[in-house]
Amino acid sequence: MTPAGALGAAAQVVLVGAGSPLLVGAMRQVRARMEGRAGAGVAQPWRDLRKLLRKEAIAADGTGPLFRIAPLVLAATALVAAAVVPIATTASPLDGSADLFAVTALLALGTVALALGGLDTATAFGGMGASREMVVLALVEPTILLSVFALSGRVGSTDLGAIVGSALHRPELVVSPVSLLAAVALAVVVIAETGRIPVDNPATHLELTMIHEAMVLEYAGPDLALVEWASAMRLTVLLGLFANLFAPWGIADASGAMPPVIALPIAMAVFTGKVALLGGALAAGEVFMAKLRMFRVPELLAGSFVMALLAVAASYFLA
């Protein structure tokens, strides 16, 4: 663990932890403006979280420790992912152990914990949401792995920092067919994994159409605050990973000449801009789309898996 890596990880955790509710607020604001509304303001998710933390914690009758632990596991995995994914710096504090597989597994661990929490309530909607989330997870995880494999082939490493760093040194790699195919595949799974339209609708009130929301129907007060905060962080981490894999410019390079004290603030500002842009585009795109039928979602995800597979194949043929 290098001092630069530790500093970078701390900066990343603070940036994602504090900034992710603002990203959700900004996305709601973009949507509100396009719908002709005034919008509640960018800081509204933070107001919601502050209020939820002050509220009474209620555990539904008959729920066990799983129900209480799930939000903690979800938030903890999101925080660890925020520390190790190359967001502001390619120098990760856990180099060698926190690679692509570890990050994907961390995200999956959080999702599974929340699904178990949803099952633990023993309500019809909790179980339905959990089973749907597992369907989406089973289709999303292989695609995340495969699409990043396509990029890792040329580096010879599954270390995310190394992949982002290689694109930084050889910008011609970013516009290759491999990258484009992988980008399309990863974009679809990021949307699915974060529960946005057209896979899931985060603002829905119809229990029968819910995926993520159905699992958290029974959470209240501080537990709900943790779940919402963690969901926002996962959205930020996945959008940030997507941005940095395909447009790494601005990130603090581990082998760069600039000292981290100067490079980190620049990288954080650039990252904020990139994620705000991606989030804004995602929110604007949602205005034009309706949610897909649940039975069509596997088709969409299978399509993105094929894209990822083609990207991997192309990376071997073009190498």
Partner: peptide, 13 residues
């Protein structure tokens, strides 16, 4: 919604 009120799907929320 601009005043901070939002309709939610569950009484727990």
């Amino acid at each position: 919604e601009r005043y901070g009120a939002r309709l939610v799907a569950s009484p727990r929320h």
